[in-house]
């Protein structure tokens, strides 16, 4: 079998562009990235199917000259799945826009919280109950340490739930 170099390069470019886009934070861009990656993988299947041949119908081509139909069947399945995923991700992006006014994929908040605790070198309230007989109100898990108030900066809203902001807050 000889691999078709053009197809390999096309697949590579598609997948590279897709990976670049999935590293973005906006779901719509991630979606475009996912679509590009899927198409790249589909092209890979064409590489996998070997040399192109005639249509794989009995009687139309001698069996030796047929192109391999199996990868095509697989690609067909993959395309259908990609269609479904794309629709679902679009719906998610729209729902996210409905709820938040943007479709940014935000960080896990609980995670940021625990990171804050670690940076402030505090233990969480659930570490030892007897240390806190009086303040079992949710005391913001060690987040009640002093933080200087500061003027909002214009770019805050873009990053407010990203790790950078958690780090900024402590500096």
């Amino acid at each position: 079998m000889t691999a078709n170099l053009t197809l390999v390069i096309i697949a590579g470019v598609l997948i590279a562009a897709g990976v670049y886009l999935t590293l973005e934070r906006l779901l719509t861009r991630i979606l475009v990235g996912v679509v590009l990656i899927s198409n790249g993988v589909n092209v890979l299947f064409l590489v996998a199917s070997g040399n192109a041949g005639g249509p794989a119908f009995i009687g139309s081509t001698p069996p030796g000259d047929m192109s391999d139909p199996l990868p095509q069947a697989m690609v067909l399945t993959a395309i259908v799945i990609t269609l479904g995923v794309t629709a679902f991700l679009l719906a998610l992006a729209y729902r996210s826009f409905q709820l938040n006014g943007h479709d940014e994929v935000v960080d896990d908040v609980e995670d940021a919280l625990i990171r804050d605790l670690a940076e402030a070198d505090r233990v969480s309230e659930s570490f030892d109950a007897s240390d806190h007989p009086d303040d079992s109100t949710p005391d913001e898990e060690g987040l009640d340490f002093d933080r200087p108030e500061r003027e909002p900066r214009p770019d805050d809203d873009l990053h407010d739930r990203t790790p950078e902001s958690a780090e900024e807050a402590d500096s």
């Binding site: 709820l99 938040n100 006014g101 943007h102 940014e104 908040v109 609980e110 940021a112 919280l113 804050d116 949710p138 913001e140 898990e141 987040l143 009640d144 933080r147 909002p152 214009p154 805050d156 809203d157 407010d160 739930r161 902001s165 807050a169």
Partner: peptide, 20 residues
């Protein structure tokens, strides 16, 4: 719920907590 160009403040820690 804020995203938001309009509010422009950063979340204070207690809100992070509540959100979490």
């Amino acid at each position: 719920t804020r995203p938001s160009a309009a509010t422009g403040t950063r979340p204070d820690p207690s809100e992070l907590w509540e959100e979490a």
